[in-house]
Every structure is written in C-alpha cells, then in structure tokens.
Amino acid sequence: MRCQRCAAMFMVCAIVAMSLVIGVGSPLYAATYNWKLASVLPDSHPVHQALVAFAEKVNEKTNGEVVITVYPAGQLGQEKDYIEGAQLGSIEITKVSSAPLGQFSKTLQVVSLPFIWRNLEHQHLVLDGPIGERLMADLEASGFKGLAFFDAGSRNVTTSVRPIRTPDDMKGLKIRVMQSEPLIETINALGATAVPMGQSEVYVALQQKVIDGWENNEPTVLSFNMQEVAKYFSYTGHVSIPDILIMSKQIFDSASPEVQAAILEAAQETIPLQRQIWADYVGEATAQLKEKGMEFNEVDDITAFQALAAPIHKQFEPIVGADLIQAIMDAGK
C-alpha cells in the first residue's frame, strides 16, 4: 500500500513539474523559432494591429513552430536601430518606414520622392507589381528580406506656429523629418529647414520649441498625441511613403523552406488586412483630432508646392535611375 501511495505521489509531482515547464494551455513542444518584431508605433496605432495579425498567421501556418513577439512603441530602439539590427540578425523582423530604409538600399528612395504618386491606387498598382518586386529584390544585397509594403498615408506638414497655405508659409520654419535624403531635400525645397530626428524626440522638441513642426499622417499624429504641441495640420501631401515589413535575410535564409513559405504567405495575406484597417482608421483619427482642438486646412494651390519640388526627381536620377522614376510615373496611364 505504501508503495502505491509513493507511486501516486510521484505521478502527481511529475504532472505538476511538467505543467510548470510547459505552462497551462501551451503546446507540448517548444517553438523552434522565437523571433522579435520591432516597431516604433504604439499598440494603439492601426499598423500595430496588422503586425499582431501577421505574427498570429505565421504561428498558425507553422503549427506553432514559429513564435513572433511584437515589440511596439520603440521598446527596442528607433527605426535606424531596427534596420541595423536586421542587417546583423539581432532583430529578426521589423516594420519601418521605407524612407530611412532607403539609406541602405538606394533604389528604395524612389518611393520617397515628392509627388511621385498620383493617388493611392497608383501606389498600390506599382508596389503590387513588377516594380515593387524589383525594390524588394534589391533589398537582399543589403541583408534584408522584403516581406510587404504597408499603407502609411500621405505626409502633411503639422506646425505649432501657423497653418501652411502657400510655400511662403514654410519659410523660416524648422520641420522635423525622418533620416531620408529625398524627404530632407523636399522640405528644404518647399522653403523650410529640414531637421532629421528620431520619433521619440519629436514631442519634446516641439514642446521646447527646438522645432516648429513635423510632417506625418493623421493616425500617427493621434497615436503620439502631437495635437497637444502642434495644432495646425495642413494637407501638403508632399510625399506618400509606404511602410515596409522586412526580415533579416540571414535569419530568413536559415529557416526551413516550409517556414519561409509560411512567412511569405502570411505577409501577403496581411497586406489587404492592413490596408483596410488603415482606411477605416484615417477618418476616425481625423475626427478625434478635431475634437481635441486640431485645426485642418487645405493648401491654396498644390501646384505651387509641386513646382518647387519637381527638380528633386532629376536630382535623384543618378541614385535610383531615371528609368525607374519614369516607369513609376507612367504606370497605369
């Protein structure tokens, strides 16, 4: 009888020990791959929802073999840190703007050129087609595996000083931009002074009047509460730079063919989801910003801004290729 009690006690202890190791509701086997997905956007941002969906899709398609943990709100640094981390393999996956990534893959700078997109449909047509495939392929030489382009709206000047109605209103203003040569040149061409700066520094810089404004889209303004320090939102629409989901090429190449296929499939399935989330949220974000006191205005004549920025296309021909610029401009005509 005593032996039976000992055996029963042993079984109970073994079950408890196993539950502590595995965890309630956890799969019996540990994941083969545990990867990080880094983003500077807070978890309240609509793009974050798409990143979570992507991670879940990969986990499902690999039957739990891949676990991706999303780190939002700049927990692992700024976008430059993520890009460099992906090159080194210390960060497996990241969502960044195509603008700073263009400093590492020159042809990608073409998507940051001013007024290169006629509308959102034109941008989708290009990025979903052969040109988008070429831009993704070009990333591989720099150590990245391109997974998906995401909508990020048009970027518009937001200031604490005055609304922007004409290029003259830009004069004398210091405007924060991402670290992107096309974006820097664009803001300078429009009459302001571009100030490259990490996202985490912008709020305080506006608050302390180190800068007079920045440029971004409505959801991002709301997510970072920028209406508190820059109340004027002017629809300059000078650039429309897509976000991009990338992976460290060395990490991607080290995965099994089955896992690689699952990642690419999950990324493609996430694209329409992200676009819908984005489209649904822009109007809601604008309404909330208005309720919080932000003032919106159209510019008087967008062609005046376009004329000032036009020479930048020529300036970047030696960098991205005149043929690539022309192919984008001609697409869908």
Rank of each mutant, 00 (worst) to 15 (best):
H313T: 09
L76D: 10
G143W: 06
D43L: 00
G146Y: 00
F316H: 04
I244G: 01
S256P: 04
F296W: 08
Q199H: 14
K145R: 12
T186W: 01
F316S: 00
A7Y: 11
E295N: 09
Y203G: 02
P167M: 01
R275A: 06
I241S: 07
T159W: 05
G213I: 03
D323W: 07
K61I: 02
Q109F: 00
S112H: 03
Q274R: 02
G89R: 04
V126S: 02
K145T: 00
Q103A: 15
L173P: 01
V229P: 05
H122F: 05
V259F: 00
V157Q: 03
S97M: 08
G332E: 08
P163C: 05
A310F: 13
P72F: 08
K209I: 02
V161A: 12
G153H: 10
V67M: 05
P219L: 02
T270Q: 08
K292E: 12
I312H: 07
M11L: 15
E185T: 10
A31C: 09
Y232E: 11
P272I: 07
V221S: 13
M247F: 02
A309P: 04
I175T: 07
E258G: 03
A304M: 13
D323H: 11
V66Q: 00
A38M: 10
V16I: 15
K290P: 07
W117A: 08
Q207N: 14
K314M: 08
G23K: 12
L139H: 04
E133C: 03
E218H: 08
Q199W: 13
S98H: 13
I263A: 05
L113C: 13
V221T: 14
A99S: 13
D301T: 00
N63V: 09
A148I: 10
T286M: 14
A262V: 03
A192S: 15
C13G: 11
A287I: 06
A30F: 01
V229F: 02
E295Y: 08
S90G: 03
G77V: 05
T236Y: 02
V282K: 05
S90A: 06
A141T: 06
V161R: 09
Q78G: 09
A53D: 12
S248H: 02
A279W: 10
V110D: 06
V126R: 04
E295A: 12
T220V: 10
E56W: 08
A307N: 11
A307K: 14
Q109N: 15
E140M: 13
S180H: 04
D280F: 04
T107S: 15
P42L: 11
D330W: 09
L273E: 06
N188F: 07
Y235Q: 14
Y235K: 15
F150T: 01
L289V: 07
K174S: 12
G172H: 07
